[in-house]
């Protein structure tokens, strides 16, 4: 990446954002009729679909491994073959997807009130349609919206955001170009009301002294995302409940 400036002298990033700005987020809830809950989200050029089924009876061999007094959360992360610059051979089941699946499961195990649904299973299916960095973050945010749409009880929203550190400046919500250059990457998901961290991942190296600054900007990004999601959920609720109220 010689000659490519990730942060210009004027303080702008490669896609024209300032260091503390998110990409544009657009989202929709209830995109599928068949699923119990579904959502679609765009973080700039990263586009993700999520569908939630359940809670329903435990199906298949997974039931044997599950603990019986809480709900079992089954995740599947997949990337469409056309989602990346180079066509992917395996949309799911490769190491990277498996790891992401595991991360998603861990994240939502901490947020969903699983003890309310013993002997049940909740399926979360996430599909990345277009990948431009921050796939985990977009997946988590989409899955949160889908879970809310399905009416599954959660402690709080789960919001995820990434951050990086370039030229002594912490960057919020990094895109693919920034992700793939040799820069540190911090991925954080939080419960925004209590600011509890549910998931933190760090790639590449970052000096200890800078960690708190990068963490702060990632958490700031999460709470910004929370406000966008909350507004979208409230708008969706208004639309869905107004005709209902006139009749009952």
């Amino acid at each position: 990446m010689a000659g490519m400036e990730l942060l210009s002298d004027e303080g702008f990033r490669i896609d024209g954002r300032r260091p503390n700005e998110l990409r544009r987020i657009q989202c929709r809830m209830g995109v599928f009729a068949q699923a119990d809950g579904s959502a679609y989200i765009e973080h700039g050029n990263t586009k993700v679909l999520a569908a939630v089924y359940g809670p329903h009876d435990i199906q298949g061999s997974k039931g044997r491994a599950a603990v019986h007094d809480i709900a079992f959360i089954n995740c599947q992360y997949s990337m469409a073959t056309f989602s990346t610059g180079e066509r992917k051979q395996r949309p799911r089941g490769d190491r990277k997807s498996q790891e992401m699946t595991h991360h998603l499961k861990q994240t939502f195990d901490g947020a969903i009130l699983t003890h309310l649904y013993p002997h049940s299973q909740i399926d979360i299916y996430v599909e990345v349609l277009q990948s431009d960095g921050g796939n985990y973050c977009a997946s988590v945010n989409a899955a949160t919206l889908a879970l809310i749409d399905a009416g599954i009880p959660m402690k709080d929203y789960v919001c995820a955001c990434s951050a990086s550190f370039i030229d002594e400046t912490p960057l919020m919500d990094i895109n693919y170009t920034e992700e793939s250059s040799a820069t540190p990457q911090l991925i954080v998901s939080i419960l925004p009301k209590s600011e509890h961290l549910v998931f933190v991942e760090m790639n590449s190296r970052l000096h200890e002294d800078q960690l708190s600054r990068v963490l702060d900007i990632a958490v700031k990004g999460c709470s910004d995302i929370y406000h966008i999601l909350d507004r979208a959920v409230k708008e969706h609720l208004m639309e869905a409940s107004i005709p209902l109220s006139s009749d009952t």
Binding site: H56, G151, L237, A240
Partner: peptide, 24 residues
């Protein structure tokens, strides 16, 4: 008392419930 689902609050005397728009 926190809400755990998105919906409207229903109060019956001292009992507070939140009814989601869509659920099983």
């Amino acid at each position: 008392l926190y809400a755990s689902v998105a919906g409207c609050v229903e109060r019956v005397n001292k009992l507070i419930c939140v009814k989601p728009v869509k659920s099983r």
